[in-house]
């Protein structure tokens, strides 16, 4: 079995009087794809922000490659992951190619030509023609923005990929395309992935393992096969609407 790439141990988070989640433990092995599911307001996005270091958990720790995220290891972690935000979060003021290669913009290691080449390659990988390189995000459709967001996340060929509701706001056909693309990207790069979603189709296409966040705790965890067969009432509730 591959070793765990990212682990969360005893994570808790609270906003003033509102406890978001408590004592969250999870572990994702190398090359595996984990989906964190749950209803609205269950703290999925806050958990993701804690996992990527955008928020500090109140208690608990996060381990990357077996080491806690502190000191120089934090920068190593930041250089090892890519994230696709719910609304793509592309920078409006710069064109597509600069968005994709933004990580290299201030590194001083890549010329403009090299950055354009990387952007073109990644755009090709997400199925968009390079004629889009010089367009601005506002000139793209929602699905195209998501693809560019994925291209930006994979620009550095990261070890870990995070997806926050990758199909929200997209029509079913585009959602399917994005789901298949994510699965393809994960396999192509051999990355470990963590996806936040409540889209059942996404989960079935992307995930190897699933955890259900319910009432501030991890209510259930298991593989995609056991997910379909489990008698856990909350999982059944989750699956039921789409099967009827």
């Amino acid at each position: 079995m591959n070793p765990p790439v990212i682990q969360a141990q005893g994570l808790s988070k609270r906003f003033v009087n509102n406890e978001v989640f408590n004592d969250i433990n999870l572990s994702v092995n190398k090359g595996k794809s984990l989906a964190i599911i749950g209803g609205s307001g269950q703290g999925k996005s806050v958990l993701l922000k804690c996992l990527v270091g955008l928020m500090q958990p109140d208690t608990g720790k996060i381990l990357f490659d077996g080491e806690p995220l502190q000191g120089k290891h934090i920068q190593k972690f930041f250089d090892s992951f890519g994230i696709v935000f719910q609304g793509a979060a592309l920078f409006d003021s710069i064109p597509v190619w600069e968005n994709i290669s933004f990580k290299f913009k201030y590194s001083g290691t890549h010329s403009i030509k090299a950055r354009r080449k990387i952007a073109s390659q990644k755009l090709d990988l997400v199925g968009l023609p390079s004629s889009n390189l010089d367009l601005y995000p506002s000139e793209l459709s929602g699905g195209m923005q998501k693809r560019v967001g994925i291209a930006r996340a994979i620009a550095t060929e990261p070890k870990i990929l995070f997806f926050d509701e990758p199909t929200s706001g997209l029509d079913p056909i585009t959602s399917n395309t994005i789901n298949n693309l994510i699965r393809f990207i994960i396999k192509e790069l051999g990355s470990t992935a963590i996806t936040i979603s409540h889209d059942l189709n996404s989960i079935r296409t992307i995930a190897d393992d699933i955890v259900l966040l319910h009432k501030r705790k991890i209510e259930w965890s298991g593989s995609i096969d056991t997910f379909e067969k489990t008698k856990n009432i909350n999982i059944r509730e989750f699956i039921k609407p789409s099967s009827t």
């Binding site: 922000k49 990527v52 270091g53 955008l54 920068q75 930041f78 250089d79 992951f81 890519g82 994230i83 935000f85 719910q86 609304g87 979060a89 592309l90 920078f91 409006d92 933004f102 990580k103």
Partner: peptide
């Protein structure tokens, strides 16, 4: 979430 995106890009 562009500010968050900036942070994740170091």
């Amino acid at each position: 979430e562009q500010l968050d995106a900036l942070k994740t890009l170091s």
